[in-house]
Design a protein around this nucleic acid. Structure first.
Lengths: 186, 186
DNA sequence: GTCTATATGGGGATAGAC
DNA sequence: GTCTATCCCCATATAGAC
């Protein structure tokens, strides 16, 4: 892997693990096995490198979600597949965690990919829920966009509960609860 | 307010705003209008001060939740009151945000109050949901602990969505979605 | 492209005077 | 109790040699 590539990947991992505030250029360099000058040759500085890393993480997350959501089955099945998809629960969401970072929130540029991706995800889910509603699979009184927001929030909040307790269990519990609420009447 | 008191309150605010990693002793001192020596006279160091601050925030959060959950009305009403309670949505949850802090998660001691409080909240909500279920207000097939986890997760995740978008709206949308799923059939 | 040198300020704390 | 001095290391670069 090229040096810039290693720098980007290292930044992605450190941002995931320690956030923006907790990640220093020096730590990135060491993780990437690159020198000081090398990093500043390829990138303008920490914000520049972080922006590149965040954009890539956003794209990847979108692709992963799209992969699951385009699968087979009823709308409920696809929502379930999304919710039950394998995750590194204790590491949390590499994008969602950035919303707790003051420097990310303070920067329009750094926040944008996070915002756009979560927004896209909600719309994508809303479309699926709406589809299910039209097929009579869900109660007609439900609002697809609201349900989509609830789904994404449950996932993001599930990470919080899991990390607080030091165990993935609460994440799964929250997901099971949501699925039981969504489950079409039989 | 006494100096130790001002230091604790300043720490609470800075932890809420910037997290543990993003909060320096110097920033705390300045915010509290206290000198270097003063801070180290009253507290052993940053972790000690943070622990005191986090414990207080945890107690306060528990008291606030208890206040809402002990209110009048049906179980559904009380869950709704909890979900719709006024919040400083864009600031996020002062405890939940700490779960994204690597140094907090790495410390048993700092994580404990966060874990215990969210755990207590889930159990408290589970009791209310179970009550509603026994009264036939909720579908009998629901699992109270699962629903409680979903409720807490929706709130914690709602903060994430709100901060990502820079607006409280997604939080409210997610809450409305959850309430529509919980709403007793009429 | 990568390296080393250098710079300024902050993080986190201890020591001892007042 | 509070203040100032001092410490060492890290954060975040810039400059210029190789």
């Amino acid at each position: 892997m090229s040096t810039p590539e290693r720098l980007i990947e290292s930044t992605r991992e450190l941002l995931w693990e320690r956030g923006y505030v907790g990640t220093s250029p020096k730590a990135i360099q060491q993780h990437a096995g690159a020198g000081q000058g090398s990093m500043y040759h390829h990138f303008k500085g920490k914000p520049d490198l972080a922006l590149t890393a965040i954009r890539r993480t956003a794209e990847e997350m979108r692709a992963t979600a799209e992969g699951v959501l385009t699968g087979p089955g009823t709308p409920y099945d696809r929502v379930e597949a999304y919710l039950r998809r394998e995750r590194d629960v204790l590491r949390g969401c590499p994008l969602g965690r950035l919303t707790m970072d003051p420097d990310v929130i303070a920067s329009e540029e750094l926040r944008a990919p996070v915002d756009e991706t979560l927004d896209w995800l909600r719309e994508r889910l809303a479309g699926i829920v709406e589809e299910g509603r039209e097929q009579g699979q869900f109660v007609p009184s439900l609002d697809a966009e609201e349900i989509a927001a609830t789904i994404v929030a449950t996932v993001q909040g599930g990470y919080v509960l899991a990390r607080a307790s030091g165990s993935p269990a609460p994440f799964d519990t929250a997901v099971r609860g949501l699925l039981s609420l969504l489950r079409p009447a039989r």
